[in-house]
């Protein structure tokens, strides 16, 4: 699940990519809805150090298959939403409006690199 057009464009034809034109936090909510339906989280919903809302982009890997609700996934996405919606990150939303195309493409690139590292892990292990 991603709101990053670069991830959609590169991986859309290779993997099951659900793209939404939405904010970082809206993507977390969309992932939570999937977790509530029994999909498991396969990557961490927060970024390595780029702060929530600092980047507009996020790509999160979830299982295609569904089962009973996975407690760990549910707990992780809830914690991530709590962290990301904290008011300390609100100011970043305003700042996003000032980003030019170059900055937006850089954020897309870093998110793409982060999810690519996860895809490499997923291809070689469980």
């Amino acid at each position: 699940m991603t709101n990053n057009p670069r991830v959609r464009d590169v991986y859309g034809s290779k993997y099951c990519v659900l793209y939404q034109d939405c904010s970082f936090n809206e993507l977390l909510f969309a992932v939570r809805d999937k977790v509530d339906k029994g999909h498991r989280l396969l990557t961490h919903p927060l970024s390595g150090s780029v702060k929530p809302n600092e980047t507009p982009y996020k790509s999160i890997m979830i299982s295609v298959d569904r089962g009973p609700i996975d407690f760990e996934s549910s707990s992780l996405i809830s914690s991530a939403i709590t962290a990301a919606t904290d008011k300390k990150f609100e100011k970043y939303v305003e700042r996003q409006k000032t980003f030019n195309k170059r900055i937006l493409e850089d954020f897309q690139l870093v998110d793409y690199c982060v999810i690519t590292s996860a895809i490499e892990s997923a291809r070689t292990g469980l």
């Binding site: 989280l41 396969l42 990557t43 961490h44 390595g48 890997m61 992780l76 982060v114 999810i115 590292s117 996860a118 892990s121 997923a122 292990g125 469980l126």
Partner: peptide, 9 residues
Amino acid sequence: NENVYLADK
């Protein structure tokens, strides 16, 4: 390490 993939973590 600090990887993104949860199984790695």
